[in-house]
């Protein structure tokens, strides 16, 4: 058995592994692609239904995607006199700073705490390196996450429920 045939037969296992990893990664990409498309379809359907309902009142053709943050009533919320709900149009930054779309004067919040935005049929949330962190359904947000209807968002002791 020469050196070459030894290496070659060893590499045959490597080749098989690589090819199957390749297949696996392609299948995973296809799966993610399909899921993205199906959520987009659902949203389109939902928007169409809304269009039918508001046909009488709709004046402009350009639709602004809106979502609502419902405030959960607790002690801090009452003390800070938060609104019952905050409406997000396409994009909003939540924080203590004055430039924020949703400004809440709470000492546990950072100047810019988190942001929510709409893109490709999905609502996204990203924590903006806040000191005390943002929690969605009691899990601390580290990367960008997709928000679903009814998710609980909590930041600095305040709690909100996300609704599309």
């Amino acid at each position: 058995m020469t050196l070459y045939s030894f290496i070659s037969s060893g590499l045959s296992y490597v080749f098989t592994t690589i090819i199957y990893l390749f297949i696996f990664s392609v299948i995973r990409l296809i799966y993610l692609d399909i899921r993205k498309m199906s959520t987009e379809d659902k949203r389109r359907e939902y928007e169409n239904q809304n269009m039918v309902q508001s046909r009488g009142t709709a004046l402009n053709n350009r639709r602004i995607n809106t979502a609502v943050l419902h405030t959960v009533k607790n002690k801090e919320a009452v003390e800070l006199r938060l609104k019952k709900q905050y409406i997000i149009e396409e994009f909003a930054v939540f924080g203590r700073g004055e430039d924020c779309e949703i400004q809440v004067n709470n000492k546990f919040l950072s100047l810019e705490h988190f942001q929510i935005w709409f893109e490709d049929g999905e609502w996204f949330l990203l924590d903006m390196k806040s000191r005390n962190g943002t929690y969605v359904n009691d899990i601390r947000v580290k990367k960008t996450v997709i928000l679903n209807d009814g998710d609980e968002i909590s930041a600095g002791g305040l709690e909100f429920i996300f609704a599309v």
Binding site: R28, L29, T144, V145, I146, D151
Partner: peptide, 10 residues
């Protein structure tokens, strides 16, 4: 919450 899975096209 849904973790955003980004497809790794590389």
């Amino acid at each position: 919450m849904q973790r955003l899975k980004k497809g790794n096209y590389k």
